[in-house]
Design a protein around this nucleic acid. Structure first.
Length: 504
RNA sequence: GCGCCUGUAGCUCAGGGGAUAGAGCGUGCGCCUCCGGAGCGCAAGGUCGCAGGUUCGAAUCCUGCCAGGCGCACCA
């Protein structure tokens, strides 16, 4: 979903040709402001020479409002140069939309739930959960921006064997004994042993505080102990069978590669039974699409969760599992193993203490969720002020300074005449935002935002360096340009949960 | 053995069929009477893991291989 100023040109060319036309920004200035390979793509179906088709498009383009020049380049590209009026149109579009620029692109809106983090309440949040939170929350923000109704949920598995083991570990430590086999160690266990109350409850409270601090606004907190497993098992009865004394769910009927046990031979429910109750509760609350944000070590769950949806009579496709690759810690170039049980981890609160929420969130979403992530503990500490997030925030603060100094001076998106190259680049970058966001949303890939924000900041810094804003002939236009840049930078950062400061 | 993810500059990573593959960090050299120098410019640095295939065109799609991460429970 490109900006309207761009989409208008695309539609006109499309009507002329009868096949899809997408404008792209070419890598080199000699190839114009925008270019399209539409003629090359259409050639096979139209059974005509690409250059011939491109010539036809060129003629059409030259007649369009906003197009200053058009040229055909072999083997069939069409290159476009836009007029000052077009730049005014594109800039005006941004200022008119304000902070809604690029929003509401979803064709149909849904009630979406994003389940994220969902940690075992047996210890504080670690940097592993932090990637889940930063990624999942950013996806939630994107979906909301696109127009969906979004709720974030965090689930606590507070009933299982791990919770019991954790409680036993804290009690043992309180008596000065070693933790039980496979139990929990670490400083926080010692700390909890000195406090009163249920350790699991203490952890749940701490996790809630950490997530709030990390700017992940959770709408619903759900605990396994609150769910009605009996009701879920009853609802699944048509899809279960008994074998070897256990109750099985026929998940293979919904695409799983093997059936799964719901109730063990000894009568205790499995983890899947808890998941079933949880899934049922989600649908009962009316969500139409269920997103799960899970680490790569859980990707085996996908077919199970979809099968549960099917067994409850919903479309398995309404379940969407977002898998992110794991975080590996290194220290001094060597791999550092993380184990919550041993207490040998880096906690999210420590990371925030070290580098702050902005740098941490930026760092955790800047690369694709499909990319395994390495965090060098030493480097993360050292490089605090080298994090590109400050580069982007600085651009925002710089603009804020100019606009403040400008006071109520007149602003106008209408350029006086030809734009400088740096002005053109900046407007084009801003006009690219709606499409960038729409694609990031569709692909569930918020990492496109940091990448975009750096380029935008880059374009702004270059513009700023070469052109005076205040008291220049083009002051009104340049103030409008600054205003638009400020809006889009702030929006890009907000979508990944990073603040856009007026001053630094 | 089967499945998912990854392999791009010294390091961390963008790039989802187009023109001469990009950014940050690091390295080298420049730029402050001036709206914020947390900035700007220039340079060096690449067999896009390897080999085939599809295509007018492949880092991108397909197949095979190599390497790394993760998963294949009546654990959670």
């Amino acid at each position: 979903m490109p900006a309207e100023a761009i989409a208008r040109i695309e539609r006109s060319l499309q009507n002329r040709l009868g096949v899809p036309v997408a404008l792209e920004r070419p890598g080199q200035a000699e190839h114009g402001d925008y270019a399209t390979n539409a003629a090359l793509r259409a050639a096979p179906t139209l059974r005509r020479a690409p250059v011939e088709i491109a010539e036809e498009l060129r003629a059409a383009a030259l007649d369009m409002e906003g197009v200053a020049d058009a040229q055909v380049a072999p083997p069939g590209f069409l290159n476009l140069w836009m007029s000052p009026a077009w730049y005014g149109e594109a800039l005006g579009e941004i200022l008119a939309a304000g902070e809604d620029y690029g929003a509401g692109t979803a064709s149909t809106t849904e009630r979406v739930q994003v389940e994220l983090v969902s940690p075992n309440p047996t210890g504080p949040l670690t940097v592993a959960s932090a990637r889940n939170g930063a990624y999942g929350d950013s996806v939630a923000r994107l979906l909301r921006f696109a127009g969906h109704t979004v709720a974030r949920e965090c689930y606590f598995n507070d009933a299982g064997a791990q919770a019991d083991l954790f409680r036993a570990s804290v009690e043992a430590r309180g008596r000065g004994e070693e933790p039980p086999e496979g139990g929990y160690a670490g400083e926080y266990v010692t700390r909890l042993a000195g406090e009163t109350g249920d350790p699991v409850e203490r952890m749940i409270e701490e996790i809630k505080e950490t997530l709030a601090r990390f700017r992940v606004p959770v709408d619903d907190w759900v605990r396994e102990t609150e769910l009605d497993a009996e009701a879920a098992l009853k609802a699944l009865e048509g899809h279960t069978f008994e074998q070897d004394g256990a109750v099985w769910l026929r998940t293979t009927a919904f695409g799983d590669d093997k059936d799964r046990v719901l109730v063990r031979a000894d009568g205790r429910p499995t983890y899947l039974a808890g998941d079933a109750a949880h899934t049922l509760w989600k649908y009962e609350r009316g969500f139409e699409r269920l997103l799960y944000v899970l680490g790569a070590d859980h990707h085996g769950y996908i077919s199970r969760l979809k099968a549960l949806a099917g067994a409850f009579g919903h479309d398995p496709e309404s379940v969407e599992v977002l898998i992110y690759q794991l975080v590996h810690l290194t220290e001094g170039g060597e791999a550092r193993q993380m184990s919550k049980r041993r207490g040998d981890v880096v906690f999210l609160d420590e990371l925030i203490d070290e580098i702050g929420v902005d740098a941490a969130r930026w760092y955790l979403v800047r690369s694709s969720h499909e990319q395994p992530m390495e965090i060098d503990v030493d480097l993360a500490r050292e490089k605090t002020d080298k994090n590109p997030v400050y580069y982007v925030q600085y651009a925002h603060a710089r603009i804020a300074g100019i606009l403040q100094k400008a006071g109520s001076a007149h602003r106008s998106p209408e350029p006086l005449g030809e734009l400088a190259p740096e002005e053109r680049d900046l407007v084009k970058r801003l006009a690219e935002f709606p499409e960038t966001v729409a694609e990031a949303t569709e692909r569930r890939g918020p990492h496109a935002l940091p990448v975009y924000a750096i380029r935008l900041a880059d374009d702004f810094h270059r513009f700023y360096h070469d052109h005076r804003v205040l008291e220049s002939e083009a002051e009104a236009f340049r103030l409008a340009l600054c205003e638009a840049a400020k809006i889009v930078i702030a929006c890009s950062l907000d979508l990944i949960g990073v603040e856009a400061p007026e001053r630094m």
